[in-house]
Nucleic acid binder design. Sequence first.
DNA 1: CGTAGCCTTGAGATGCATCAAGCATTGTGG
DNA 2: CCACAATGCTTGATGCATCTCAAGGCTACG
Lengths: 248, 248
Amino acid sequence: MTTAVPGFDPKVFKEICSTCSLRELCVPGGITADELERLDNFVERRRPVSRGETLYRTGDPFRALYAVRSGTFKARVMSDNGREHVTGFQLPGELLGLDGVAYDKYGVDAIALEDSLVCVLPYTALERIARDFPPLQHQLHKVMSREIVREQDVMTLLASLRAEERVAALLVGLSERYRRLGYSATNFVLRMTREEIGNHLGLKIETVSRAFRKLSDQGLVRIDGRKVELVEEDALRRSLGTAVVTRG
Amino acid sequence: MTTAVPGFDPKVFKEICSTCSLRELCVPGGITADELERLDNFVERRRPVSRGETLYRTGDPFRALYAVRSGTFKARVMSDNGREHVTGFQLPGELLGLDGVAYDKYGVDAIALEDSLVCVLPYTALERIARDFPPLQHQLHKVMSREIVREQDVMTLLASLRAEERVAALLVGLSERYRRLGYSATNFVLRMTREEIGNHLGLKIETVSRAFRKLSDQGLVRIDGRKVELVEEDALRRSLGTAVVTRG
DNA sequence: CGTAGCCTTGAGATGCATCAAGCATTGTGG
DNA sequence: CCACAATGCTTGATGCATCTCAAGGCTACG
């Protein structure tokens, strides 16, 4: 299985790509050495983005997708009254930029919440390779569709949950994503401020703070600044109604 | 340009496909007669769905995308407490089922709000043809990305607008879509109930009703049951803040 | 040590949900 | 053709969740 491919180090793959939503792209099962090389050549493997830096802005011409290798991003839109809406947070292995395909320009700002690394996937090359390599094509479609589903979930959350439930849903969602990454699902550190959480969930910062307090008082979680411990994960999950899936 | 192709009637195309989000699929610019025939063979061109009927249900195995030819649909999820969330309304030329790719099953129920016709686009065939026909591939990606952007807009709406603004945004959005279809952008009939509007916008039916009333009192719109007239379209638009785009 | 950013908490205001009643329209069976 | 049920819509009164405004505390960092 481990064919000798120039410039490809399986150890690096293990760390970086194994949880990536596009791993089929970088090291798909059944990919030939030849194909792998071709992929390797077009992906820029580690562009650093430091905390607070903008990876791309709303309206920038769309050129590439970005896969988060390490770190965390927020995607946001600013309304002209100066208010921020955070459309999502991106953890390692997740993609940025899918909204750019629609109108050949990005529809959000992508901002690093901590020092991060991204893979750069030039889009036209990606489309070209996808044509020659059906599993990759299908994987790309799945990734886009998952983003659609994720956003549906957020819409449902915004349309039907109360403040405390929204915050609980966010925590459960982050928990699942950290588990998938092989990190602790019960102990993690929030990379975003209360305000960013509020701007994602459609709540004011004070309401977010009080929601944390209430969940904490019920013994469901333990909160210390940005450090979170899920004490009663199941109860937390149940407090949402199982229909609300939390994929993002 | 009008090559003689068996089974293809340009007049029918004009009526049906010219505003379709997948028109590149059915009659792309620059498509050869050969390719067109191939497309023609795999698309089922007019499946009727009568009012209230379900086109597909949450969890049904994903097989096909559907393009609305005539009529209107709602896409919805039911939470287990029995509450409905309407993720969107689909007008002629718009697509249903993109969420199904992600997990090989549909993520919503698609229900006709009036007697409707859809085109059926079997998905595996679509992927296959897209590989051989780059403009179609790109168009498919654009359509998926537009759905992502549309949902981002709805999320922003839900997270930041007040009741009256949400209703105004819906009306402006419908207006634009009817204009694109060649219908009046200022006079149209709502195909959905107040309750469905509320379940889309995260509002109760009474609140929707009162929002209509207020917009009406301000002279921005005229409402008679489901008949809507946009009297001051610009003012209505301005009442939203221009950053809130309303694509669906 | 001091400042700036972030977070918490309290008190009061407000927008939407809830509860309740009544009206309009449509369709149906007598 | 009419009576009346069913469905959808409106309107009013009240309560509650969240926002708003205000103050103070904590932490990190220069």
